[in-house]
Deep mutational scan, measured.
Amino acid sequence: KELVLVLYDYQEKSPRELTVKKGDILTLLNSTNKDWWKIEVNGRQGFVPAAYLKKL
């Protein structure tokens, strides 16, 4: 499993997105899109802007 660090808080703006908090370490599911990465948070899957995340 690949992990990502959340660099900035992000509030979901659609049902396909997820809310994340700065400092969270989460599972990366897909990073093929350069702008939006798919991650998992508490069993939910969704997208967060790639600029808000850093691969560990």
Rank of each mutant, 00 (worst) to 15 (best):
N33F: 08
R44C: 06
F47V: 07
K34V: 10
T32A: 13
D9T: 06
D35K: 14
L28M: 04
I39G: 04
D35R: 14
G43L: 05
R16W: 14
L3S: 09
L7D: 01
G46Q: 02
P15D: 15
I25W: 03
K55F: 08
Q11W: 15
R16P: 07
E17Y: 05
L5C: 07
V48N: 00
K55L: 14
K13H: 10
P15K: 09
V41Q: 15
L5D: 01
R44A: 12
A50N: 04
D24T: 11
K55S: 07
E17Q: 14
D35P: 02
P49F: 02
K38A: 10
W37N: 01
P49M: 03
S14E: 10
Y52Q: 04
L18D: 01
K54N: 08
E2M: 11
W37S: 02
P49H: 03
D9V: 02
L56H: 06
P49R: 04
N42H: 08
K55E: 08
L7E: 03
Y10T: 01
L29I: 14
R44W: 06
L29A: 04
K1L: 13
K22F: 05
L7V: 07
L26H: 15
V4H: 01
Y52L: 15
R16N: 14
E40A: 09
K22P: 03
V4K: 00
Q45R: 12
P49I: 02
V20G: 00
L28D: 00
K21P: 01
I39F: 02
N30V: 09
Y52S: 08
A51S: 14
L53P: 00
N33Y: 08
R44T: 10
L53A: 01
T27G: 08
K1R: 11
E2V: 09
E12S: 15
K1Q: 14
V6F: 00
E2C: 07
K22M: 08
Q45N: 10
Y8P: 00
Y8R: 12
I25M: 09
L28P: 00
K54H: 15
G43E: 09
W37Q: 01
G43M: 07
T19Q: 06
Y8H: 15
K55M: 14
K22N: 05
Q45Y: 10
P15I: 07
F47E: 05
L5V: 12
V4Y: 05
E12C: 07
L29P: 00
E40F: 05
D24Q: 13
D35M: 12
N33C: 07
A50G: 05
I39Q: 00
K1W: 11
V41H: 15
V4W: 04
L3W: 13
P15A: 08
L26P: 05
N33D: 15
N33M: 09
V20E: 00
V41R: 12
L29C: 06
E17D: 06
E40T: 07
G43S: 08
W36E: 06
V6G: 01
K38E: 14
Y10E: 00
K38Y: 15
K54S: 14
I25S: 02
K54L: 15
L7H: 02
K38S: 10
E12H: 11
V20H: 02
Y10A: 01
Y8W: 13
G46L: 05
V41C: 07
N42V: 06
Q11A: 15
L53N: 00
G23N: 07
E12A: 15
Y52V: 15
Y10W: 09
S14N: 14
I39H: 00
